[in-house]
Design a protein around this nucleic acid. Structure first.
Lengths: 114, 114
DNA sequence: TTCATGCGCAACCTCTGAGTTGCATATTAT
DNA sequence: ATAATATGCAACTCAGAGGTTGCGCATGAA
């Protein structure tokens, strides 16, 4: 078993990414960008009721979590999706639900032994 | 394709669960409870540096997201894990990364055609 | 009955998240 | 050169998250 320290570190990373996804606006940005098409801030903001600045802030939150990456192209700032952090979350959730499934299995066999 | 309304509703639900997981303390509570063993508030709070009240608040956040369920047993309040919301998140993340994989595949075949 | 345990409620504090607005700057288009 | 576009930066507001403390109440143990 890994040390408690390592678990805390992993928890911290995961919590950071989860928190980035814990907002409706950011989730919709992720949905849009997950088609692989890079988009500028203005493009992403045009679909929303929020101001461009608000969208910019959200994009930076996503970038800090590693979910999107930005690059400058002329006067535009282009954001594109990166699947890796979400894959890690998926693995984490899988590990949790696997543990749960094993619990259920143990419970079932226990009940059947009666 | 489902309506924009439905997407927003789903986003809202997912964001709610993501947000609940977007905190180190709550993530550690989930980790503990995911072994299937129900625990009282005091039991869960004893491992932490935080006050019992803080843990109580976190547990209620998790309960509102459907990740844990509570029941009263005598003078104790017992919390237990529920895997279903996390399974839904897993499905959501899978759908996102599947879309991404398809994008990569298209990109690859496009490159190879050159 | 008396005492200890486990909780809930409420008040309070502090800090951060989410959003806005205004303005300055760089880049592209005319 | 001038105008329009795309963005960044900073200041500001407001609400809510996260945390603490104190107290009261129900329940279990002695």
């Amino acid at each position: 078993m890994s040390s408690k320290r390592h678990k805390q570190q992993a928890n911290k990373r995961h919590a950071h990414v989860f928190a980035a996804l814990g907002d409706q606006t950011r989730l919709s940005l992720v949905s849009k960008l997950s088609d692989g098409q890079p988009r500028s801030i203005t493009q992403l903001a045009d679909d929303h009721k929020l101001s461009r600045q608000a969208i910019t802030k959200h994009l930076h939150v996503l970038e800090n979590a590693g979910i999107v990456q930005s690059s400058r192209s002329g006067r535009e700032s282009i954001f594109q999706f990166d699947v890796q952090p979400l894959d890690e979350l998926q693995n984490y959730l899988r590990s949790v639900s696997d543990q749960w499934d094993q619990t259920l299995a143990r419970l079932k066999s226990f009940v059947e032994e009666q």
